[in-house]
Amino acid sequence: MSTIQDTAHRSGATALGGRGIHAVPTMPILSLEGLRKTYRDPMTLKPFTAVDEVTLELERGEIFGLLGPNGAGKTTTIKLLLGLARPTAGRVLLEGREPREPASRSKLGYLPENPCFYDHLTPLEYLDLTGALFGIAPAIRRRRASDLLERLGLGAHARKALRKFSKGMTQRVGLAQALMNEPRLLILDEPMSGLDPVGRSEVKALLREQRAAGVTVLMSSHVLAETEPICNRVGIMKQGRLVEVGTVSTLLQSGVREWEVAVEGMSDAVAAPFRAGGHDVERIGSRSVVRVRNGDSLQDVLRQMLQAGIHVHSVEPRRETLEEHFVRVLDGRTVARGGRS
């Protein structure tokens, strides 16, 4: 727990922060230091900062979710760390190597956002090309290609031209090509996009399996309900900045918790004191739900209910979902921890 908090802190602070003190003996699988990318409008030369002072270190074997609204800079960050775009400032190290060095990418799998592959090939041919680029022996890459296509539910389409693939099918090919080299680091830009519910749960299972095998995953998303159950840590980006980093549970603990107390047959007269006490009371048929805002008053509320002879049906804690947290952070109503904005 404490290391996570430290990392969260470090991520928010600049590269000048406690890196030296916290430095771990093993080489981080991916580290971003004060990463910045400024685009210039070719006509007006007006600068626009798409990624602003992002500092982050991934821990081996974790699934890290990079979250943020459209245009937050997630894809740009990913492009910077693959060497597809050059940073204006700061630096990226993939297991200690600069992304410009081809060798830094030999154990990396990448799924681009809205991927597009060569129309003139079949998935089998495309995976073979991928394998060849990784320098995998022909026999091994052939076997791996057909295994992966099978695994991703494309076995029946292995010899169909990619031109004829639907969005979700293309996404699956994208996942397959990202796994061809049995990567140590997987970088997935919106892996769930375009997939049907079955596909999403398959991908979640696949990612858990990868994590179990020791693979580190960095995935971007804005489908938070999909991200929450699989990510060990998430980072929230807003206007190019990484405003918050932490485990899902630590991020959410700081949010409001409430308890839903469901009771049977409570008259308005009995409900009045609870309303007066600041709790929401909602009536659904013969049942009422009292929303209690904090743990301390929960005890009082329950005691009063039992004294009034009300039948308490259930008491359920309602955690803030990541989605609600996300919206709250982006509204800027919470003071971002670890961030500076």
């Binding site: 492009k79 693959l82 060497g83 597809l84 081809p102 060798a103 830094s104 990418r105 030999s106 990396l108 990448y110 681009p112 809205n114 991927p115 597009c116 592959f117 060569y118 991928t130 680029l133 990784f134 320098g135 994208g174 090509q177 970088i187």
Partner: peptide, 14 residues
């Protein structure tokens, strides 16, 4: 244009 190059350039190739 079609960004097919992205997936290719993420492979160990200059």
């Amino acid at each position: 244009e079609r960004r097919t190059i992205y997936a290719v350039m993420a492979k160990p190739i200059r």
